[in-house]
Design a protein around this nucleic acid. Structure first.
Lengths: 334, 334
DNA sequence: ATCCGGGATTTTAGCGTTAAACTAGGAGCA
DNA sequence: TGCTCCTAGTTTAACGCTAAAATCCCGGAT
């Protein structure tokens, strides 16, 4: 491996001068700089970032730690990356497997020290576990959990979004709306919040809330949703609307409805949550709640930068507003 | 920050003993070990991985460098992660923005040194640029480009897959099949390969190859595909089949066909490539070419481990087999 | 001629860890 | 007794870089 001292010897200068040329931290005379750069080129030197990090105490890298790499998180990550890069830092993704043990490990202060800041999407950690995380490292939490007050935190307006989607279908004429993927007790606080919004919409409309219409899914995927909804159809429970707690769930619902010969939106209205790209392309277009990924990404990065600049700043808790996007899967709107 | 020497002082031992307890590299007497662990606990010590990396020369981390975090790459990444973790290493994702400059930067040896091995998904680098990458770091290339022989490389059987999908639609009765998203000259070698497979299928069936049926997309997305296909419909060019070079493109096609009142598969058959999750749920199910993500992930990790174990091993070039998955968007099969 | 200011460059001193060499203190054995 | 061997622990010397302090050198002011 070529080190800085190799370059220094080749250029006939001290190691520190090489460092100064490369990092532009202190002025270096033009002829010297040229000789150093020539030596760098000749030897193919690349600075050892690990050594730089150890010495300089920063890594110029931010981590986004997510439960899984695909779908929702991939899309958000692609929004966050340019914002982080705009500040001259790198973004890397790490994964927790939505598994409490792994999430704890990724959270170990050891791993955190590799980064100047961390955006942590909390999927599987409860408040107690988070409370045990004691580190001066700047952290911003993303996600729908309850979190200790001392953390910066961004969550979506889950209840409000679910209420909007459900109310919209009620206005469109649905009277028996399933809450697909919702739950009463769940590791995912999010599904509970969205169920509450679904209930609120019913109450506001003076409609009864029937527990049979809360349909949990066994595995949290399109496939799980498809199966769960096919079971409902088979059971004979009448319904004329489906509020899917996420668009991934809604996608499974689309498949199940088509297989059951139910037309969308004529027989059954359908609305999802997350406004994934896919939702606008699946005919007839899936009405969804747009969480404004870009806005969330901007808030997240803003909070993180603030925290990195001032460790003592008071923690900020943001509830990101959501917005109903009406498409062909519901009646009304366009 | 609590360091090892703080722990050593607290436990009344040398720093080296603390290191030995934590890394299990050399035996330590039981009472001493207990005292050290108590001190670690009491002070909340976490090892500084940067220092460990500098000294030990390894990071126990593998990077997967991809053009973007969502869709295809997210799915592959989720397959790769457990395989890397099974060997006691971490996986992190970095992004290149499918932009040659950024990809070059991520490839700079400087950044590579942070990892014990790198899986690089080559989207925007041509052979010459890759040829300039000189590093002893274990690298496995993933993707459809031509790459220098000295690199380990895994690519899909693009031509074969495109041929399979197209032939299948020809057997199903289509005679005028668009190659949507394909190209003659393209930064994405993949789209050219798949166009060739589309041509081959025509030749094998004794059908003419009409250049007007190769429809490029302006932006590589569902939206771009939707617009391109709507333009074709507006132009009046008759067609009865669409081979979409990726499922993301196919999804845009589904939307455009539905908007144009064309029925799938009755009026137009449709097939994609990649077999994304979404393809099995979009009614009537999108016929697609399954690249076997899991198999590709396994091969990738196997090659990387081999390369990490033996830097001098001869480079391996794998063409991963693909398989046609027939769904409702084409006639025939089930 | 001497001193001074200030930019250019070097020297010093680690950052926190671990590989390798070394020491202390027994146990085992002839 | 004296020697070797072993185990448990310590000391030493980096890994490759950079912050901070020290030094050098030259033109201009006194």
């Amino acid at each position: 491996m070529v080190t800085m001292s190799d370059v220094a010897r080749e250029a006939g200068v001290s190691v520190m001068t090489v460092s100064n040329v490369l990092s532009d931290r202190r002025p270096v005379g033009a002829p010297t700089r040229a000789r150093v750069l020539a030596a760098v080129e000749a030897l193919g030197f690349e600075v050892n970032l690990t050594a730089r990090h150890l010495r300089a105490g920063r890594t110029d890298t931010v981590a986004l730690i997510v439960p899984s790499f695909h779908d929702y998180f991939g899309e958000v990550a692609d929004e966050i990356a340019p914002l982080v890069e705009a500040e001259g830092r790198h973004l890397v993704l790490e994964r927790t497997s939505a598994n409490p043990e792994h999430e704890m490990e990724s959270l170990s202060v050891a791993r955190l020290q590799l980064y100047d800041g961390v955006l942590l999407s909390v999927a599987a950690l409860d408040r107690d576990q988070l409370d045990r995380v004691r580190t001066p490292k700047p952290i911003v939490l993303l996600g729908e959990h309850e979190v200790p007050d001392r953390f910066d935190h961004i969550k979506l307006a889950n209840e409000e979004g679910a209420r909007l989607a459900t109310s919209h279908m009620i206005e469109g004429g649905s009277r028996r709306i399933l809450a697909l993927g919702a739950a009463y007790e769940s590791a995912h606080k999010m599904t509970t919040d969205r169920r509450v919004g679904w209930e609120t919409a019913h109450r506001e409309a003076g409609l009864p809330v029937d527990e049979r219409y809360v349909v949990p899914v066994t595995t949290y995927s399109s496939q799980g949703a498809r199966e769960a909804l096919l079971d409902v159809v088979a059971s004979g429970l009448p319904f004329d609307g489906v509020f899917a707690v996420t668009d991934v769930i809604a996608l499974g619902a689309v498949a199940a409805l088509a297989e059951s010969g139910l037309r969308v939106p004529d027989d059954v209205q359908l609305a999802g949550f997350d406004n994934l790209d896919v939702s606008s392309f699946v005919p007839p277009g899936i009405t969804s709640i747009d969480p404004n990924h870009r806005g969330v990404a901007q808030d997240a990065v803003r909070l993180l930068h603030r925290r990195m600049a001032d460790a003592a700043a008071p923690a900020e808790h943001i509830v990101a507003p959501v917005r109903l996007v009406v498409r062909g899967s519901t009646r009304g709107g366009r």
